[in-house]
Design a protein around this nucleic acid. Sequence first.
DNA 1: TGTATGGATATTTTT
DNA 2: TATCCATACA
Length: 771
Amino acid sequence: MSIYDTLNPEQKRAVLHDKGPLLILAGAGSGKTRVLTHRIAYLIEEIGVNPWNILAITFTNKAAREMRERVDKLVGYGSENIWVSTFHSTCVRILRRYIDTIGYSRSFTIYDSDDQKTLMREVCKYLNIDTKKTNERSILSVISKAKDELITPEEFERTAGGDYNQSRYAKAYIEYQRRLKASNALDFDDLIMKTVELFQTNKEALTYFQNRFRYIMVDEYQDTNTAQFHLIHLLSSGINEYGDREFNLCVVGDDDQSIYKFRGANIYNILNFEKAFPNAQVIKLEQNYRSTKNILNAANEVIANNQGRKDKALWTDNEEGEPVHFTHFNTDFEEADNITAEIQRMVESGEANYHDFAILYRTNAQSRLFEEKLVMRNIPYRIIGSVNFYARKEIKDILAYLKTINNGLDNLSVKRIINVPRRGIGLVTIDKVTTYALQENISFYEALTRANHIPGLERMASKITPFVSLIEGLKSRLNQEGYSLSELIDDVLDATGYLRELEEENSEEAMDRIANIDELVNKLVTYEENAPEEPTLAGFLEEVALVSDIDNLEEGADNIVLMTLHSAKGLEFPYVYMCGMEEGIFPGYMSIYAENPVEEIEEERRLCYVGITRAMKCLSLSAAKQRMLRGETQFNRPSRFIQEIPRYLLKVTAPGPGRFPSSNQNSNFTTTARENNPMNTNFDKQNSWSAKKTTDSYKPYLLPKAKHFEGSNMGSLDYGVGDSVKHIKFGVGIVTNITKGGKDYEVTVDFPKFGVKKLLSTFANLVKINE
DNA sequence: TGTATGGATATTTTT
DNA sequence: TATCCATACA
């Protein structure tokens, strides 16, 4: 009995395919990772391929790690030589080796989206682009799209021609790229684009990697963009010893799960694979091993509403299972309350464990209500994606120190930390130094080292010089023999006084920040201990730059997970709750009112398909009749995706009585939840942090009184239109109007000295004056 | 130079 | 509603 006997016929065919291009159309839950790992094993053990010649590319670190683990189990010897990594880290590794041949230095920094935005803000200021009319983000997204399509700034400018807007974007692109280069920095898109550029200009590098990667496998192929396509095409078009192009390329994907078009994914990569790689074989994996018949049928019915798909029909041998549940709640509050109650009940009855559950939603903002409920009920949970650990201020600050030490050209990082902690160096000084650096064509940091020669800055030199010697001191220590990275970070925390300042502040927030910094130190120590090669500062920084929140999703922890539908791709759970199934939420209003709604809605539908197919045993959908969104009450109809599921697959449940029929009981719950809150200790730091935060900011929910509040409810304010009121700052004025805004009253008051002001009643503390 | 404050503004998804 | 930013003030 061999390991290949457990495969079904199609899977086996895919595994035994050893030469030439292969497209595996793998439906959800059809065992594609299994096929990939078994194929690697087959190539090594049966065909005699050197593990060293195999490259497997995924999108997330988590997927890469999983694949590595599974391959390790399957392949006894030499599996560590298989190159398993994400697109981005693959490119970083290639660039670290060759990037100096295209004009960057090997110690380049990677800019994340925050950094990109900061840089773009500088660019806009420099080019006099009004960021109120065109915000940084939209410019960045234009640039990102261009980079995905391998369009250089110069080309972009050429095609822009006389078009005013386009040429403005072009100018921004050029300047942005110039500054990245000056900072010796690459953004995420550059990682791919520059690697392609390297391969196009440096034949030696290309040949080296073509010879190295004789067998290439790509997971989630439907999410690749044009740049990634070219990268793979270049890498796989090596010539073998008989002078033939082999294209030993095996890609796995599912066009129905393509959900990253907004990020440049090019669906034609998978739809036209057979054109791009002649003689490609296509194998379809259509048997689903994950879900019940009912769930799978619901998924099939929904996705059938999309046009232009690759023809396929997913089926399963699994049992029929429960029908798909659907509940139409009255409010979003009731939705969160009932779902969390149901989960709790099922766990307490011993039917399931917390880790069997996932709550999925369209937008991160929807997690908040659930979080509040989970805290109240003492249910352990983990939210993926809302606040990235590495996006926190204190973490970015410390990393900026490390980046400055690693790459002094990184202007952004230097500017970030020059006055953190406070050194009395303000904006004026920074501006002067920047201007000087620009004039002299040197980096910002270089300019700092010459502070006492900069006209007009002689007096500031006494503040700047200590900073420079601080950095220089740290740099030189790093160069000493036997000085470790963990010593470096300790020295950074100590010598900068960063930690001391937080300790002295002694607030709860400061304690959280310290805890986060400790966590960062831990990560660095872990990196040092586990690094495959010699641990380096650049290595650590790049690892940190390329992780996403989903990568930290630990297995085995017994908690519910909450995440967006996007993050859920590739995962599976016995019980899945998809909430907020409403028109305007999912599909989102952005897609409904888009220029090309058909296309956009189809992408949303694929997202829905992804969500449904995450469920193994039981799927529950829900919508709310009214929902609070950015302080406003919205009334949405149930999502069209619900209608697309045939009635016989659905079990429509009436919403429960609602635990909180009237609003005033809530406050009791808030306080008790706070006091008996022993589960904080069971959580990791991130959770207790977020839990605390929301508990503190929790306010009792007021049932929205949307329409008819004018009469009776006015009583809760002790003044009305026409009354004289006193404000602590504005003095006495006359109320001219009162409207309901969110949970509060917006009171318009005419102050004789300050004019007409709109105030929120809870904050304004207006006092009625009796005349 | 640093801080407070109020106003504006955003909210889709992320390697 | 929550955060960000510019402006005014100390």
